[in-house]
Amino acid sequence: MGNKTILLVEDNQQDELLILRALKRSNLANEIDVVRDGQQALDYLFGEGEFTGRASQELPAVVLLDIGLPRLSGLEVLARLRANPHTRFLPIVILTSSDEERDRLKSYESGANSFVRKPLDFSEFVETVARLGVYWLATNEPPQG
């Protein structure tokens, strides 16, 4: 039985609240860890810094990664994760407001598994996040059991 955690990397607290709310509606809320910037995300996944001692062998089922993040940007985080054998196959979903084609291409180029734009409309937003949660936690087969 694999890990059923979602790691949300999001610096916007309102978006965070909305995402949590959306996941809660799909009964996925207690499976979620939240970090607020890129460096924190790396520390979390590698068990370093403030996350020293965290069982870093335990990888989340999916990382929901924003692009515009403080300290390390989402794309930098993505590149670091892909460069490390430990996180090379970790499912990563870019969840962003950006509609720049370059960001999208760059994300896929850097090894993102999916690119999802945050919808403006709340209902759509809730639906999208819920679908993401269900898909990556239930439908998708993770790389390691």
Partner: peptide
């Protein structure tokens, strides 16, 4: 315009909630 989307999503989202 782009950055207005996040607060707007919050306004409409929480209003809807």
């Amino acid at each position: 315009a782009h950055n207005l989307r996040a607060p707007l999503r919050a306004i409409s989202g929480f209003a809807q909630l």
